[in-house]
Amino acid sequence: MRIENGFGPIDIAVSGLRAQNKQMEVISSNIANARTTDAGKGEPYRRLEAVLKTQKDDISGVEVQKISQDTSDFSKILDPGNPEADENGYVQMPNVSLPVEMMNMSLATRTYQANAAVLRRYQQLVDTTLELLR
């Protein structure tokens, strides 16, 4: 006998909450390392991005497939006093742009809230049905 848990929307909303939670983690890593010039390997910090994927083909939740690196170019700033500066006085800085991160953060927050709203609404919906049992 197959067990269908019957509360699908809850699992889906929870998967959304989890994915956005991870997204937030990635964004905070990007912001915290916005001026990290040394991330090992002689390179500054490379911006990370969470890649989201559906859990299955049908109606489904979402999951973080992987955390991939943003391969765009690093920015260079002139700062001759910096110990990391090259012979021309330029320092390689991470490819993180704070305005973009702030925008992504707003998006992640709103999406998280939307998923929480779905969860709450569904809860009210089932409660309506359960009221009929009184």
Partner: peptide
């Protein structure tokens, strides 16, 4: 989040 979902169910 997972635990909250469990709790609601």
């Amino acid at each position: 989040e997972n635990e909250v979902g469990q709790l609601v169910k």
